[in-house]
Amino acid sequence: MANVFSYSIGRKLLMSLSGLFLIMFLFVHLTVNSFLLLDPVFGTQEGDMFNAGVHFMTMNPLIKIIEPILFGGFILHVLYSIVLTIQNMRARGSAVYASGNKTSDVEWSSKNMFVLGIALGAFLVIHLIQFWIKMKFTGDPLLADTTFSYFGVQTTGHNAYALVHEAFQIPWVIVAYVVGGIALAFHISHGFWSALHTVGFSNNIWLYRLQTLSTVLAWIIGLGFCTIALVQYAFYPLS
């Protein structure tokens, strides 16, 4: 068992497990983000539910434990993608086909996972600078404490909503989020089923089911993030 990661399939296992873990995190993230859309639906105060959600995420001890694991998983995913890509380029050899590759019926995203990954990495830098670093370390005037209903109790906490609300008024940020969301959708549309394939959960029948599921899931996540940003921009201008 110990040396499983010295085999190609073992290395891919790391990619798969870390990828699946990141998808799980994205789901949680998307759930919290979706609160941005829910305030108007439930008629609560602007940003109430979102702030409560953020509060939950920052205060929950479980999340505190998972956070470093998440970070580790991310680093692992990136590092192994680099290792595997280099190995694969070496295996492909230096000679390139002059007539290119005209094999049809191959998922575009599956051939461009690394490129999509780089795009996502770039997006992540913007995203982290804009929110995570401010919330975690540097702080920001917009984050000044506010009160909101937290499981029915009026609670004081960061006004994360204000920060997000302002950021989503800047056109280039919206463009970045839309591009990022689409890249994410493509990345996951291959990544999800491929990860399950690599851990061995697939066969002749499930292969196609998983591929469909993967596409649906990916676009829910990807479009979910862009839609939230777009709705904020289009319908909730700064007052």
């Binding site: 190609s8 290395r11 191959v106």
Partner: peptide
């Protein structure tokens, strides 16, 4: 692995 083949990324071109 030893003879130098690459890591599968489930692209599926092989199947086609």
């Amino acid at each position: 692995d030893e003879v130098g083949f690459g890591n599968c990324t489930n692209t599926g071109a092989c199947e086609v």
